[in-house]
Design a protein around this nucleic acid. Sequence first.
RNA 1: GGUGGGGUAUCCAAGUGGCUAAAGGAUGCAGACUGUAAAUCUGUCAGGGUUUCCCUUUCGAGCGUUCGAAUCGCUCCCCCACCA
Length: 393
Amino acid sequence: MDIQDQLLRIAQNTEVFLGEDVLKEKLAQGKKLRVKLGVDPTRPDLTYGHWVVFNKLRQLQELGHQVVFLIGDYTTQIGDPSGRSSIRPILTPEQIEENASTYLSQAFKILDASQTETHRNSEWFSKMAFGDLLSLTRNVTVAQMLERDDFTKRYTAKTPIALVEFLYPVLQAYDSVMLKADIELGGTDQLFNMCLGRQFQKTFGQTEQAVLCMPLLVGLDGEKKMSKSFGNYIAFNDSARDMYGKIMSISDEAMWTYFKLLVLESSDQIESRRTQHPMQMKKELAQLLLRPFFDETTIAEEQKHFETVFSKKKLPSDMPIFNWSHFAQCKTLVDMIMATKLYNGSKKELKRLIEQGGVEVNEQRIDNIVFTLTNNTSSVVKVGKKLFFKVEA
RNA sequence: GGUGGGGUAUCCAAGUGGCUAAAGGAUGCAGACUGUAAAUCUGUCAGGGUUUCCCUUUCGAGCGUUCGAAUCGCUCCCCCACCA
């Protein structure tokens, strides 16, 4: 592939692309580029939000470049004080290792493991002398720090910023120096840190890394970025059923960005999809997005389940079964539902749900909270939109 | 270090002695309408019970004043701003 095409490929879907000239030169020399991605091992569960970044890494692998995962084990041990999560417990090295390996095994569902190199930043930071850290911090000014978007926001909103938080960008930037990164990848929220990496590399006499910011994938609510802390995510570890259901529940508008960022379809392809029924397109999206994680049979089953339960409003073919003996202590239906442990709200919430018509027995709505099933008869109970179970004699 | 302002439920935020399990938003959940989309409307949103009512816990933490405290007093913890 010629250099211009490679650059186009690299730039595809990026929100920010800095350092194109330097990159072009390196490509002209036929250099195998080192592509850095920093990984925060506090939360091992990956979401589709990460997929956007992995897609870019995979593209770069396909172009023959070297992906370097940096596990921020050292920075994690200090404990991330950002936002309100300052209470977050500091992880032990064992936990960090475990998280890191979970992270990688999930990542390799999208990426080629054989073309990936991993490092830990404890390799250099654990040996670093305090004086060296001090001279690193000399390279950055406070005004510069405050320019970082989220610091600006927090500062003007008068929410606290801990002093350590200023060190994070510094450490991350130094990682780029140690890894001799040619490209660093991240979400747009990483822009500042990655630019600082460029600055540091220059100070250390290296060529500046190119910076690629991938857009943040919008979450299930259709507004905020997909993130565990907002609860609007689809996780790589979700069950096929959850994944399918969650994809079907995204908004039509968000669906097109999913096609673009996750499936990597061109705008022509997406335009032609727009002319068709959105629901049908969403089903296709779900199929495409489940493929790296599940086999075709499972996907087909989940599609069928979805159609039965939600489109036709019929009962699902499989549901948990409980024997009557399980409910020996139960007086009312409410007690029985609680006894299955499938409902994860309070008893009071469940009663409210019944009062509002959210509970059915044998497809008949229940409207009083003292409702009782006839002993030793088989019934199907539906609680809310998604929870079903069967009671058998 | 000095001065001033603050800490209320998942989040934002009102409330300065009883009518307050605490206004109003937002989010969530359920119902209607649908395509488990969006929009809209309605209800609900601390826990438990023998459920037109009763009990328990909750307004940063603790102690106190009072028949009665989110509200008043004392001590402590934390945050913000300005000045240094």
